[in-house]
Design a protein around this nucleic acid. Structure first.
Lengths: 250, 250
DNA sequence: GCAAAAGTGTTACCCGTACACCCATGC
DNA sequence: GCATGGGTGTACGGGTAACACTTTTGC
């Protein structure tokens, strides 16, 4: 909350008489790439089907216009909540898209965010036609990527607006971020109870390649357990016959 | 250049009748942190002194309102050119600042860029009072940083708007970027003729710490010369008695 | 017994850090 | 001769990739 004090009467006058509309303005939206893991541990993104013009019937990432009394970060959090009913999810602003013709209605500057939703927190009943939202698995292709949902399937080229570029940029950033942040933990079903196997599957989904289990294990112990960021709290047989250590993020 | 074709008469009608002004809008600016190296190889930033309200008399980073017919990246490039007369400089969008109260005049969303200007390309005559722009060396302090110019000197807290936060964020990003990008080369007086010593000074200025010359040399040869990104083109005695190899970025 | 995940261990190599040491030359 | 930058070399430790091998247990 930044409070500005006018320095003198003259400035007070200036601010009172300032006409905010002397120049034409663009609209601002917060658009949000909502990542999650599918039940089969594939990197997925939540899309909504546009019900109105323009790009009617096309798939798009959720987003909406910024209100004048909310920080742009709040706009993003609000949009996320409206789409997923989820609160307190980790979001990250990653790039602003401001090409002149990106929206045929008017000039729109889109501040793009990415969000990491825990696996299985989003449950869409497949085939539920009342919902115009769907989770799509991301499959990288030669040009762009393919989006595979339970009911629909499309190429990234068919997305509305410049959303192909926005999602592509988000994927690239995420692939980098996973190495030096703790984003991977945000995808866990339960940050307070998980196995190395679960975390490894998330890394593999994001990177799009398989990882050596032994090395991953060593790195995990060194980076998180030995530093005290993560604690061992028990064992589990959820994924294998042999009991696996269960960890908890502190 | 994205051309949108309406899918049908109905959509054509919709777009024709769309009222862009049905919601209140914020203004958009591109603000730009212009980094360069001082003559003594210190990381510096170009600031301008505000001549009007608000924050009259305070130092700020250059920036300006986006025009309706220019991409936001073009706005940034235009502002850079207006301030420095320089064209074709490397710029990078790094974050968008959208707090509600960041500008007392009205709601302003600032898309922030950083630019890397070659050493000594900017020449301000010290003491030239006709100019309200000045180059400030950045000295990190306990809280924020200090800005030391030839004529003026201030703490980052005294900057206009939220420009302390914008510059701080830019410095942090630059410190990271220098390790995995070739940003350092952008600061060179002449990318087509430089010595290892010159490049090392840039790294040291950005990181704020001294670097082992021998290791820097080995890394430079491995990363750039052996990969063919940089070629040896001769020798120079500019910085030392003994001749040093001169390199050229391809 | 086989498959799949859990877990231990080893090897070879790359890379960063820290130095020691020599070269060239203007002061 | 000494300070400064240019340049070579080396020794050590940690990180990483690749892989061999054992354990556990449901099927």
């Amino acid at each position: 909350m930044r409070k500005y004090k006018a320095s003198c009467k003259e400035e007070e006058e200036f601010l009172k008489n300032y006409d905010p509309d002397r120049y034409e303005k663009a609209a601002n939206t917060a658009d949000i790439v909502i990542f999650t893991m599918s039940d089969k541990n594939e990197l997925s993104v939540l899309l909504i089907k546009r019900g109105g013009y323009p790009y009617k019937g096309h798939w798009a990432i959720p987003g909406g216009f910024m209100q004048m009394d909310e920080d742009i970060d709040i706009t993003a959090a609000r949009e996320l909540k409206e789409e997923t009913k989820l609160d307190g999810i980790h979001i990250e602003q990653f790039k602003t898209f401001g090409a002149v013709d990106r929206d045929p209605r008017m000039r729109v500057i889109s501040i793009a965010y990415m969000a990491f939703v825990p696996q299985s927190t989003l449950d869409f009943e497949a085939g539920d036609d009342a919902s115009d939202a769907e989770l799509f698995k991301i499959k990288m292709a030669d040009e762009g990527f393919d989006l595979i949902g339970d009911r629909d399937r499309l190429s990234s080229h068919e997305l509305a607006f410049d959303h192909e570029e926005i999602i592509s940029t988000a994927i690239e950033r995420l692939k980098n971020r996973i190495d030096y942040t703790m984003d991977a933990f945000e995808f866990l079903k339960d940050k307070k109870s998980f196995t190395i196997y679960e975390l490894k599957k998330i890394y593999e989904a994001v990177k799009g390649e398989s990882i050596d289990a032994s090395n991953f294990r060593r790195d995990f112990l060194r980076k998180y357990v030995k530093t005290g960021l993560v604690d061992e709290i028990g064992t589990s047989r959820q994924y294998s016959k042999r009991a696996a250590a269960v960890y908890k993020l502190l």
